[in-house]
Design a protein around this nucleic acid. Structure first.
Lengths: 207, 207
DNA sequence: GTATTCTTCTTGACCGAGTTAAGTATTCTG
DNA sequence: CAGAATACTTAACTCGGTCAAGAAGAATAC
């Protein structure tokens, strides 16, 4: 059924080519040292085509890593019945740690490190990531409220904000440890401990 | 002692003129309906001069309201001895509510409403505000850690994130109620209740 | 297999935000 | 009043992002 016509395959290859060209150039000269025109030229497409695939320059960096993120709204909706929302979120986050999801910061592959260096050294990219996270936070809030597990919409918003705030801080810490030269496997146990403590705090807030 | 020379007075007037011109134009035609060239022309300055005073277009909207914010890092540093950090932050926030600080959302003046409409309808302005808030969050985190009241840097980061997350949600709710036509005085009691509950949650997370 | 249609791509021009350089005006200092 | 700072203007430029018109190529009909 996934009959992927030639047209779709081509589009996918073009998309990959653009992302790869961008990543290579950014790694070499930094985000601000490369213009989108440069990227387009390297990927052998025109500038309008590039923007048909990625709506901002920052997305050239972020899109790849955002896609494989199982959104927390999804986690809530598909949790086994009987499992409290926050437990499901905690579990999902621990799984992402185990999988070395790039956005947890706990990934020492060269691409992940380049990614985090770009993120760390380029405010506009960081900002754009924040925008995506805030969108997900709102999704989570509505899903939490819809799940009926929380008193009111206000509390749902607060909890969603706390969950995302916590994940952001956790990612910062993990990425910083990786950036300081330690391996992901080395940091993993401490990362789990921190995550558990952070989620404990969020849960404690609810009592 | 504030012997304000002619030069400083002129600069201050120019700054005001630019902000006022910008605000009037934005209110009329929306943020995206006005170019910085338009603003510069209306304020009778050149574009480079405008950018000497405000580093981005978004700052034309935000600067006025950011200045009167007593930063939370400052609150921590100057609290009476013996008062726990979180109590001081709560107290400071309640004072801002009482003062109808624009950034709490609890202000029904026409300028505040215009401001929040701009904020709500213009993603880039909202994003820029978020950037400022994240900077303050980091300040608060270092100050919290320096105060020695918290176990470690990690916990300090978490708490700072929670405090700012909570304030953001509170502002959203207040602004939304004001936007729906209610007066600030009307909403005030509920705003206090929400704030108390939110800070209770943050404190509960620490035990 | 050719014609038609739909999509995607390219070209080139354009807009607006933000920066830079060189020169002019104005305020401050002695 | 003269000279040193400092603020301002003008003009040109870079870069991110958009738009319109047409060319190229894939899908569908016959």
């Amino acid at each position: 059924m996934e009959e992927l016509g030639l047209r779709e395959r081509k589009k996918r290859r073009t998309r990959e080519a653009i992302m790869d060209a961008a990543f290579a150039l950014f790694r070499e000269s930094g985000f601000d040292g490369v213009s989108v025109a440069d990227v387009a030229a390297a990927a052998e497409v025109s500038k309008p085509t590039l923007f048909a695939y990625f709506s901002t320059k920052e997305d050239l960096v972020l899109r790849r890593f955002l896609d494989d993120t199982s959104g927390p709204a999804f986690v809530i909706r598909n949790r086994p019945s009987g499992v409290p929302a926050l437990k499901a979120l905690r579990q999902s986050y621990l799984q992402r740690l185990a999988k070395r999801d790039t956005l947890t910061g706990l990934n020492d592959s060269t691409t992940a490190i380049t990614f985090h260096n770009l993120l760390y050294s380029t405010p506009t990219v960081m900002t754009r990531l924040t925008v995506y996270m805030l969108a997900q936070e709102r999704e989570l809030a509505t899903e939490l409220f819809a799940s009926g597990e929380l008193d009111d919409e206000f509390t749902a918003n607060i909890v969603a904000a706390q969950v995302f705030g916590v994940q952001r801080i956790l990612a910062d810490h993990n990425a910083q440890e990786i950036r300081s030269g330690r391996t992901a496997d080395e940091v993993y146990p401490a990362a789990i401990t921190r995550a558990e403590k952070a989620f404990d705090m969020v849960e404690a807030a609810l009592v």
